[in-house]
């Protein structure tokens, strides 16, 4: 073999780990797999159930009802001119998408060890498919929100979505990036030491209370001690939830600085997650 021929190797398998070895070309080659995984996730969840995809509706509805009863009626948290039920439904719909992305990707390596141990495909496909299939679920849940939205409009409530609605897709992307970034990081870090898995279980439900889901940020500013209110305010998720309600219900606050802050944080977390994930995928199977 002549030295010139050496250049024609298609790829190499070695122990070296490059920080940014994303290999997008390969991900593209496996796009059909991505689609099939998404399809599998969607079609298999509610197989052999009678209500089927209706279950997607039931969870946010019940949660909103409970939240309204507990926080707004019992705890008398004010949501301004917005009906509390709709307020909660908006927050929960958005929150659900983030948590679904986060918890769904945070055990990528462990729950797929069986497949990953037998065959190679770009591992990023897995978390990507989780994010996309949850997007479908999010779409369905958004549909309910719209139904109730129309209902309240007909009831004569003043709900005016504003021009910021154009940012809606950006918000979805930000949530997906945040969920993915955190999820991929956790999933990579738990291949060897599983301590973090224990944390994820309860952290998610606690995180909701720090993310202004069942209450508006203005109420937190009013009633909470300063350090706690700051904690809520600087939480990127709060910004997302608030922004969400702002563009849909015209309640709460929006600032471009806050928007840029969340955007940069989600991109940063996503990139960190991706790098860690790529470093782990090469030989995690030995330690999982």
């Amino acid at each position: 073999m002549t030295p010139q021929e050496n250049d024609t190797w298609l790829y190499e398998i070695s122990s070296e780990k490059k920080a940014f070895d994303l290999n997008l070309k390969e991900v593209w080659r496996y796009r059909d797999l991505l689609i099939l995984f998404v399809k599998r996730d969607i079609t298999t969840v509610y197989k052999q159930t009678i209500l089927g995809p209706l279950w997607y509706f039931i969870q946010p509805l019940f949660t909103s009802v409970i939240f309204t009863l507990v926080f707004n009626n019992l705890g008398s948290i004010s949501t301004g001119s917005t009906p509390p039920f709709l307020f909660n439904l908006a927050g929960i719909t958005a929150w659900n998408y983030f948590t679904a992305c986060f918890t769904g990707t945070s055990n990528t390596f462990r729950s797929n060890a069986g497949i990953f141990g037998k065959v190679y495909f770009p591992r990023v496909i897995m978390p990507m498919s989780v994010t996309i299939s949850n997007l479908m679920k999010f779409g369905i849940q958004l549909l309910i929100f719209i139904i109730f939205y129309c209902y309240y409009l007909l009831q004569g409530f003043q709900l005016s979505p504003n021009l910021h609605l154009l940012l809606f897709p950006v918000y979805i992307v930000m949530m997906a990036l945040l969920g993915l970034g955190l999820g991929m990081t956790i999933s990579s870090m738990t291949t060897k030491y599983r301590d973090l898995n224990v944390l994820v279980g309860f952290a998610v439900s606690l995180l909701m209370y720090v993310s202004a889901v069942p209450y508006p940020l203005s109420e937190a500013r009013k009633k909470l001690p300063d350090y706690a209110a700051d904690l809520v305010a600087y939480n990127p998720l709060t910004q997302i939830i608030e922004g969400f309600r702002y563009m849909l219900l015209d309640t709460g606050s929006f600032s471009w600085i806050g928007f840029l802050y969340v955007l940069s944080i989600s991109i940063l977390l996503f990139l960190i997650g991706l790098v860690i994930f790529n470093r782990t995928e090469k030989s995690f199977i030995d330690t999982v």
């Binding site: 298609l10 398998i13 070695s14 122990s15 599998r40 298999t44 052999q48 497949i115 030989s283």
Partner: peptide, 30 residues
């Protein structure tokens, strides 16, 4: 490429597909 070597390199000019098991990823519900 399920795991990487501790040292050394494998160079290839073609795509490798592996059959370490039949039916990897079969989903019982599908």
């Amino acid at each position: 490429r399920v795991t990487s070597p501790s040292t050394g390199v494998i160079k290839t000019k073609g795509r490798i597909a592996s059959l370490l098991e039949v039916g990897t990823g079969f989903h019982p519900e599908l």
